[in-house]
Amino acid sequence: MQRVNMIMAESPGLITICLLGYLLSAECTVFLDHENANKILNRPKRYNSGKLEEFVQGNLERECMEEKCSFEEAREVFENTERTTEFWKQYVDGDQCESNPCLNGGSCKDDINSYECWCPFGFEGKNCELDVTCNIKNGRCEQFCKNSADNKVVCSCTEGYRLAENQKSCEPAVPFPCGRVSVSQTSKLTRAETVFPDVDYVNSTEAETILDNITQSTQSFNDFTRVVGGEDAKPGQFPWQVVLNGKVDAFCGGSIVNEKWIVTAAHCVETGVKITVVAGEHNIEETEHTEQKRNVIRIIPHHNYNAAINKYNHDIALLELDEPLVLNSYVTPICIADKEYTNIFLKFGSGYVSGWGRVFHKGRSALVLQYLRVPLVDRATCLRSTKFTIYNNMFCAGFHEGGRDSCQGDSGGPHVTEVEGTSFLTGIISWGEECAMKGKYGIYTKVSRYVNWIKEKTKLT
């Protein structure tokens, strides 16, 4: 034993070699072989497995989906700052455009905790909710729209109204504003409101030439003092309507412009014939205590009207009353817009006519005020429907199939267009061939041609 100890002390290297040989010859039971080890760690190889990531292109799944990435790591994937920024906006807080917040056709661009709407022409605001041009839906104005110097929408209202708090709607500024039905039992019968379409306001006024200088022999019209197929109006439903009495009662109609003036057809009036105007009328054979009678003290036909040349060209006249009318729910003026808007309103496509005229061709006159909704007829169809001249200051309205029309005794009465609950004068009943005849239409004086003249002559002093 002493000898062994001496050998170990003198030859430590020998001992180490012996131990190493023993270990190498022993069977290893701690580690699995290569094949079995792979069965336990069965993990798919990654895209760049075996390579240094710093030297390969980034992978979106590896960089940002398996674990949260930084902007720089995302930049490695896209290799483009702009594309990385677009991805980053949604990656950080989701897609803010998912709810489609942009209105009126706006395009949404996502941002971090926010979004941006790219608005089409005519709109602005956070969600493109603000109209900035009158060309689109009248700028959301209830009545009139004008573009300011910086191309912003400025709404306005006709006389007797003021802008509401929203700067879009119009509200009454006087007790009985024009064009409004205020009798409670008839307010439910107000005709369907007309909503502004998209309009090209630059070209809204037709490029028409008034044929002022045409000389033409007097034409022989049949029954051209021209509501057939209409309905009984309720008291106060058309408070701007008046009836004219002269040699015979209810020979023509008219509309209240203001307390002192009536507008009617020029062919209705004769110099030297006494005319009485009755406002607030409903049943011409009954006294309903809503009527107001006034005498006409002055007749002003349009300066281009000449019955000797043509009885229905420039067929418009103004009547001055001896005493002002007292405005109330049964006696209310009709609204008159400017030339541009009167023309736009007419193009809405349908209007209402009213009167006490004959209820059928050569038949009896109506006792109760009649009204009828009539569609506008395109000019080409209008011209083809008659052998008589249709001037540019006239328009056609009615039904091709016949059966409904204005008729004798309705002449001078109103053709009105309702705009968001307020009625505007767009025409004056003038003439036609018979009444409600198939293929024939009622012919009306186009008020847009005469609004400046009306307003100039009827100013209240």
Rank of each mutant, 00 (worst) to 15 (best):
R298V: 03
N127C: 02
V416Y: 10
A266H: 02
D212G: 13
S49V: 12
N313T: 10
I300L: 10
K126F: 10
P414M: 10
V92A: 15
R180E: 02
L163I: 08
N295M: 08
K274Q: 08
G21E: 04
V269G: 04
T458P: 01
G21S: 13
Y312K: 06
G106H: 01
Q143T: 02
L52S: 15
H400G: 14
K455R: 11
F176S: 04
P175S: 10
S365E: 15
G50E: 05
N452G: 14
D93K: 05
Q57V: 10
D93E: 05
E434D: 14
V419H: 10
T186A: 11
T417G: 00
R364Y: 08
N258W: 01
P333F: 00
K293H: 09
I136N: 14
I210L: 13
Y352E: 03
P101A: 02
A397S: 04
K446Q: 05
G432K: 12
I428G: 00
T186C: 04
S385F: 14
C178R: 01
S255D: 01
I17F: 09
T186G: 09
L383H: 15
L325T: 00
E259N: 06
K39Q: 10
T389V: 10
L319V: 07
L460M: 15
L244A: 01
P324H: 04
F399M: 07
W356V: 08
Y444H: 03
E270G: 08
G413Y: 15
I214G: 07
N135Y: 04
R379V: 11
V353H: 04
W88K: 15
V331D: 01
R449K: 06
V416D: 00
T422R: 03
L346A: 03
Q167W: 08
I275Q: 03
R364E: 14
E208S: 12
T426P: 00
V331F: 01
N310Q: 08
F424T: 00
A233K: 05
L163A: 03
S169N: 12
I443E: 02
Q90T: 08
A380P: 13
F399N: 13
G421C: 02
N283M: 10
V269I: 13
K347F: 04
L460E: 12
F176D: 02
V257W: 02
K440F: 04
P333W: 00
I428D: 01
A173E: 08
I210F: 09
N328L: 01
C97D: 01
Q408C: 14
E76M: 15
V199F: 12
K68T: 15
I15K: 06
E73D: 15
N306Y: 05
C134R: 02
V331H: 01
N258K: 02
R62N: 04
S411L: 13
C178M: 02
F388R: 12
Q370P: 03
T332Y: 04
N151L: 11
A265Y: 01
I297N: 05
W356M: 09
K455E: 05
K362W: 04
H282Y: 13
C335T: 01
D93A: 04
C97L: 00
G21N: 08
V278I: 05
N452Q: 13
E98D: 08
R364C: 04
H282M: 08
E286M: 12
Y441S: 03
L372C: 13
S11E: 05
E67T: 05
R373S: 12
K387Y: 06
W88A: 15
P175W: 04
G50N: 15
K39T: 10
K146D: 12
V374M: 11
G439H: 10
V228F: 09
S354L: 13
S354M: 11
L211K: 10
T218W: 10
A307H: 10
Q143V: 01
D95K: 08
C382Q: 02
C28F: 02
N283W: 08
Q408N: 14
G106I: 00
C102H: 00
G122E: 07
T84N: 10
A366T: 13
P175F: 05
V263E: 01
I284H: 06
V153E: 03
V181A: 11
D338T: 10
K89F: 05
K68S: 11
I299S: 13
A307T: 07
V374C: 03
E340Y: 12
V199L: 07
G230C: 10
N304K: 09
C155A: 00
Q185R: 10
L41V: 15
C28W: 01
V331C: 05
E10A: 14
K339Q: 14
N48D: 15
N59D: 08
N313R: 13
K51Y: 07
V326C: 08
T271N: 14
Q185L: 10
L163R: 03
V257M: 03
T458D: 01
T271A: 09
N213T: 07
E61K: 15
V277G: 01
Y91N: 15
E171V: 09
C435R: 04
E27Q: 14
S11T: 11
V269K: 02
R162I: 10
Y352D: 03
Q219H: 13
V331I: 09
E53S: 08
A37V: 15
F55Q: 15
E208F: 06
E35R: 09
K311E: 05
P375I: 11
H282V: 10
I316A: 01
S182R: 10
Q143C: 00
I40G: 15
L425P: 01
Q2S: 07
I7R: 15
V243K: 09
G402N: 11
S11V: 14
G280K: 02
S430E: 03
